[in-house]
Design a protein around this nucleic acid. Sequence first.
DNA 1: CGTGCAATTGATCTAACTCAACCAACGTGG
DNA 2: CCACGTTGGTTGAGTTAGATCAATTGCACG
Lengths: 238, 238
Amino acid sequence: MHSHPLPYCEVKCEHCAVARLCLPMTAEEIPDVVFDNVVKRKIILKAGNALFRSNHPFKSFYAVRSGFLKSVLITKDGREQITGFYFPGELIGFDAVNSGYYNATLETLTDCEVCEISYGKMMELSNTTPSLQKHIIKLMSQRISHITCIRPNSQAKEKLASFLLNFINRIDRPRQTQKTYTLPMKRSDIGNHIGLSAETVTRTLTILKQENILSCSGKTITILDFRALQIISCSTYD
Amino acid sequence: MHSHPLPYCEVKCEHCAVARLCLPMTAEEIPDVVFDNVVKRKIILKAGNALFRSNHPFKSFYAVRSGFLKSVLITKDGREQITGFYFPGELIGFDAVNSGYYNATLETLTDCEVCEISYGKMMELSNTTPSLQKHIIKLMSQRISHITCIRPNSQAKEKLASFLLNFINRIDRPRQTQKTYTLPMKRSDIGNHIGLSAETVTRTLTILKQENILSCSGKTITILDFRALQIISCSTYD
DNA sequence: CGTGCAATTGATCTAACTCAACCAACGTGG
DNA sequence: CCACGTTGGTTGAGTTAGATCAATTGCACG
């Protein structure tokens, strides 16, 4: 939970597995030399560290190259609120553009590789690169959809189903034949984020197991009946 | 709740009271003739009508010129979920860019004037207008912040305080000496949105009245102790 | 092979929900 | 102009989903 100097190393986007998700990486459109000026460096973080803290001035987005992070808000009386999770290929910092400072602390759930993307330089570049501009707006739109996916006045089962579907949609897109996933966060993190206690998350998972909708042990979860999960979530996921 | 042909009329942005919030309206940057091509027309809607419905194809943002709207999602078992409110000067439709269709039905809470902004044409225009591009991203960032403001695992009092502060911040920015506001939505809408029953909203308002933090009667609400409300909300509002 | 954190399970408790009655404001039509 | 229906708000009583507290087990890692 302590933040210390961030170790950097060189990175080439063309070698990045999640580049296509992160920024539109068509070499013919953006010359490498220009692009390298925008995406600075790869930051390596061990699990449990902070990428940045609440109220620090905003100057960069961060692209998740690998690993998982959570965005945490500490209320004045010391409680934690997890306002979101970040998965590989996703961009961090959209909420900070308006206020000019980061609204939450970004903590790694696992070891992470993160690329720093200068906001100012990216905006310059996007002036001459329509596809980049479109892509940013699309990613922001996507994030808005993700946030909206948990309905606050729904039951535990419904919330958890929505959370799991959202997780799968973001981690495994386009959806593979794969049905087994590793949850990067603990029960209490899930609960905190969707408005349940850790115990209720466990109990609800147990119910879903008994109903043969999924099986899970620890952080490993297998979806047995995808359709049932969709029905429970009442969502519009495909 | 019925949707019928939308009545249009001519509108000039330079005469609009909320133009400065909606799009960057510096005449020297964007020639009128170009701009008029993007902002199509003014739509007039009576209270209780739909601007658009869930799953309709997305092709335009809508700017709220006057009035108030709510965005409603109908779950498969018929329950309503209010995913957000829209106030004068705000843009509607950010969540639809990614999926290509509107994710919710937009219903007017009051009589409304709304301007249609072609997404495609606006993106074209923003290619040559850096300030427009920056503005859109800022507005999207702002919306992300607004959505995040209600913490799902907090008490009724805290939720309601956060909701009220968010409302005031959006309706009255920069903050005036004004302390009395008219809530455009009913108790059940507030409750639905923040995850409480209408009765609990009423009861919580009654408690806040007894504590001399606010006074309210029906839709008219007066903030007596702003600071106390901020403390209850545990928020970071200024 | 402990040590410590996370997950599970059970027992109680409570904040908020639901149901119901009542009131106030408002619009409509006779 | 008033009777009436409708809609929204308030208040009370009883119920419940999920929280809290506590004890136990499981597991990962040095």
